[in-house]
Design a protein around this nucleic acid. Structure first.
Lengths: 240, 240
DNA sequence: CGGAAACTTTGATCTGGATCAAATCGCAAT
DNA sequence: ATTGCGATTTGATCCAGATCAAAGTTTCCG
């Protein structure tokens, strides 16, 4: 019944969109079926390996994308090579900077990912024709702004240990599978990337991870897989 | 002629709005004269002394405001008192968080200021009826997001000296009167506030300011008044 | 005008996290 | 299995910025 029902609603929806993670995301979730068809016709799904760039800092991009699977990091680098990750985006987030062509940051797949790429012009037109879409993107922008400001507090005022705990908490609450209090997940970032997100060095990140492990707040398997027996305990570490 | 002309255009515009700094800002700049009149009828201009709070962190606010004069700091504090300024807003910026009632940060006048306060319900209605307004607020949100991310780079990866130079540059480029290359301005923040914006201590801020003074990058008069003889020199200090 | 409180600078010392330097681990290619 | 390489951990040392402690300055109020 459910299947039949959804089948009815999906008439006219591009086949490729039907099982898409981002189908009910920030952009596609608010489009009419006509618009969705239109966007679908001009969009391209693309696999992106971990580490490869989606948008380059300083370049003009004529594309936007939706994340269908994986984690994307937003990154700023200085001329001398110092680097800061300024945001993580998870499926089904929208990636792009409306209203401005030149990007002040790079977007790079942190894990192997799939994205759905579509032309800037087309979406810009849809934005100006569709208040729902404008509102939805406005809402994502404000959420990202809240997250950025929360992270500014982490960068400016938390200790190394609190920073690492904050990162684990962020990942844990954005990467799904969690039981009542305990949580397990794979880190989408290497130690070097974690350092660039927290404003620390690799060594300090590593040391704080082992500290958290030794104090029993987390368990670590294979470097990347983390188990948090008690999320409340983790939250206490960041004195939120 | 110019005066007569603007007089004609201003028919039906509330008297109080005619000479308002924010009249052509993010909100009022895109309203119809009818909407402006409506908003004007329900708005209240208020003087706010330096240091007094406009919105409290964690509280539900049923008001938005426009900054007519002065500088407003956006602040996050931790339960143990550690504090981080996460943004500065200048006239004629809009202050408030659309779509969410409870504020995750406090807004406080950094200098003696004047704001124009109006009810959240009214503006929320106007937003949903006025795509121009939605777009304008969306645009401000994205600019704030860019600024927040730029500051994340400063917090995470710049040295104390670079941080202080970055702050001076930020103020210099947002507080108006600048000649060709040289610039002078009053700091809207105390040393303690600067420290809370940069993730440093008061002492370090003070030391870096005297360093910059001794190296000739800035001149300091009366603690608050800063002269930058050569803005390019200042920009070089932050290796932007 | 004087005096106190608040803000800022300056100095001495300490320390959390950076830097330098090896080990160790895990994995892919041979 | 063996080798080789990138990622991670661990250890030793260093230093930028924090902390502790005075001493100016400025403001403001009686």
């Amino acid at each position: 019944m459910d299947v039949a029902h959804s089948g009815v609603l999906e008439v006219g929806i591009p086949v490729a969109c039907r099982s898409c993670q981002a189908r009910h995301g920030v952009v596609c979730g608010v489009l009419s079926s006509g618009q969705l068809k239109d966007l679908g016709r001009h969009s391209l799904r693309r696999k992106v390996d971990a580490g490869s760039e989606i948008t380059a800092q300083g370049s003009e991009s004529s594309f936007y994308s939706n994340i269908m699977r994986g984690v994307v990091k937003l990154c700023k680098v200085m001329p001398d090579g110092r680097q800061q990750i300024v945001g993580l985006q998870f499926a089904p987030d929208f990636v792009g900077r409306p209203f401005v062509r030149e990007s002040t940051l790079s977007a790079e797949a942190a894990t192997d990912s799939e994205i759905c790429v579509f032309p800037r012009n087309l979406l810009d037109r849809m934005i100006s024709e569709t208040p729902e879409l404008q509102r939805s993107l406005h809402d994502q922008a404000l959420k990202e702004l809240d997250a950025a400001r929360e992270w500014m507090l982490t960068l400016g005022r938390r200790t190394a240990e609190e920073k690492v705990a904050s990162l684990l908490h962020l990942i844990a609450t954005h990467a799904e599978p969690q039981t009542a209090t305990s949580t397990a997940f794979d880190l989408p970032l290497s130690r070097a990337e974690i350092a660039d997100f927290l404003g620390l060095t690799i060594e300090t990140v590593s040391r704080q991870m082992t500290r958290l492990r030794k104090s029993g707040v987390i368990r670590i398997e294979n470097f990347r897989h983390i188990i948090v027996p008690d999320m409340d305990e983790l939250e206490r570490m960041i004195s939120a």
